[in-house]
């Protein structure tokens, strides 16, 4: 990853390194910040600054399946909010919370680029389009069963 950037510009890898590492470790811990700082040859503070800025970076672990429901304008007009309310009830958790078994977390997210196929849900990195409450139930139930 560091090789992609020009000589002496290792800092450039900070954001991708954090997000890829978070996928492995589940959260951005102080240890991870220190490690990224070391590899990218910056101060830990400079990594810490970045962690707080980007909304996909989390300091606490998310669920194994992170359910992201978009309620931005295109989704809002076609039931995104209702879908999000449904997801809260279905999972029994609120925004940015994790189910007791650690399997699911929920987040109301901003536009994720699926406006013309709204409402949209992204579970981890998988997009789901034209999602209805019933479809969301199926998706969640299938993931529950897969465990």
């Amino acid at each position: 990853m560091l090789a992609a950037y020009p000589e002496g510009r290792k800092r450039s890898a900070v954001v991708p390194m954090l997000i890829y590492a978070q996928d492995e470790t589940g959260a951005v811990t102080p240890e991870l910040i220190a490690e990224v700082a070391k590899r990218c040859e910056v101060e830990p503070l400079q990594v810490d600054e970045v962690v707080g800025y980007y909304s996909m970076l989390h300091r606490k672990p998310l669920g194994k399946y992170h359910v992201q429901v978009c309620t931005n304008i295109s989704c809002l007009l076609v039931g995104g909010e209702e879908l999000y309310e449904h997801a809260k009830k279905k999972l029994g958790i609120g925004n940015k919370q994790v189910t007791a078994d650690g399997q699911f977390s929920l987040e109301e997210v901003e536009c994720m680029g699926a406006c013309s196929w709204a409402p949209a849900v992204e579970i981890n990195y998988d997009f789901h389009h034209y999602v209805t409450p019933e479809r969301l139930d199926q998706l969640i139930d299938a993931l529950r069963k897969a465990n």
């Binding site: 102080p30 101060e43 830990p44 503070l45 400079q46 810490d48 600054e49 707080g52 800025y53």
Partner: peptide
């Protein structure tokens, strides 16, 4: 010294000390 930075973003952004 680089002991201060900026954390978070938007209305909750804040000055950040070097050991969080």
């Amino acid at each position: 010294v680089t002991a201060l930075g900026v954390g978070n973003r938007g209305v909750v952004s804040q000055i950040l000390p070097n050991f969080h």
